[in-house]
């Protein structure tokens, strides 16, 4: 199913400064259509900042991010929203809106209406996203009355409802129980299989290995490795970047 012929997102020698400190430096990578790329790295490696830089949310000190050949910073907010959707790590919602209204925000760039007043086609997309995320039954619930995991599924539904060709998810499975973790990864994997590009920051290296086409290993703001899982996550990388080693019987152990 992979459409490897198409380079969709290109990150070219990207550097990001915060004050005088270099958060990211000299990152070059690409994400193709039909590909799920996992961003892994220890806390503070720059995963979230890299995602925000690709979205054009933080300014690149050096380098550029190109989407289908055009710099992302050149796109209008709405054009960008139709191409790229973002599930942030911080899932705080200021108001206790309904699950349906939260998921309907995924269609914001196509009209901006609340769930009840969506056009029929948009509402169908929202319903199908809710179903994929296992959140259809939460449609009429107020989100501040829901558990963290239930809210996370609604946020995932909001991401999917965008139908954007490029999806960014920062720790999409953080608040989820094991079953919903696997289901969320399956849904994101299926988006890639349908020709989408998915960029996903993950802490769980096994899930990354299992679901990603390529893994980008970030370490102290630099791209340490960017390759297929078996090439990217070698024992040496595990030791150097994460300070762990494969444990007997699977899993990881301290060095």
């Amino acid at each position: 199913m992979m459409q490897t012929s198409r380079m969709r997102l290109i990150v070219d020698r990207l550097g990001v400064l915060r004050g005088a400190r270099e958060i990211l430096s000299d990152i070059s990578m690409d994400v193709q259509a039909g590909e799920l790329v996992a961003l892994v790295g220890p806390n503070g490696a720059g995963k979230s900042t890299l995602i925000k830089a690709m979205l054009g949310l933080v300014e690149c000190g050096t380098g550029a991010v190109m989407l289908d050949g055009a710099p992302v910073t050149r796109l209008s907010a709405r054009e960008r929203a139709r191409q790229m959707a973002y599930l942030p790590q911080d899932r705080a919602v200021a108001w206790s809106i309904t699950g349906g209204d939260l998921a309907a925000l995924g269609r914001y760039a196509w009209g901006g209406a609340a769930y009840d007043r969506l056009a029929a086609a948009d509402r169908e997309m929202v319903d199908s996203a809710l179903e994929q995320a296992g959140a259809l039954s939460l449609k009429h619930r107020l989100i501040h009355e829901l558990s963290g995991g239930e809210q996370a599924r609604l946020h995932l539904a909001r991401l999917l409802a965008s139908r954007a060709p490029v999806l960014f998810a920062d720790e999409p499975i953080a608040a989820l129980d094991p079953r919903h973790q696997l289901e969320a990864m399956k849904v994101l994997r299926s988006q890639a299989d349908k020709g989408g590009s998915v960029i996903c920051a993950l802490h769980d290296l096994n899930l990354a290995r299992r679901h990603a086409d390529r893994i980008a290993v970030l370490h102290q703001g630099r791209l340490h490795a960017f390759a297929a899982p078996e090439t990217a996550l070698t024992e040496r990388v595990l030791a150097e970047v994460f300070g762990v080693k494969p444990a007997r019987g699977g899993g990881l152990a301290l060095l």
């Binding site: 925000k52 907010a77 929203a81 911080d90 705080a92 925000l105 760039a109």
Partner: peptide
């Protein structure tokens, strides 16, 4: 959803 996410929504 916060200012950053709102921007990515358009």
């Amino acid at each position: 959803l916060g200012e950053e996410t709102a921007q990515t929504l358009g």
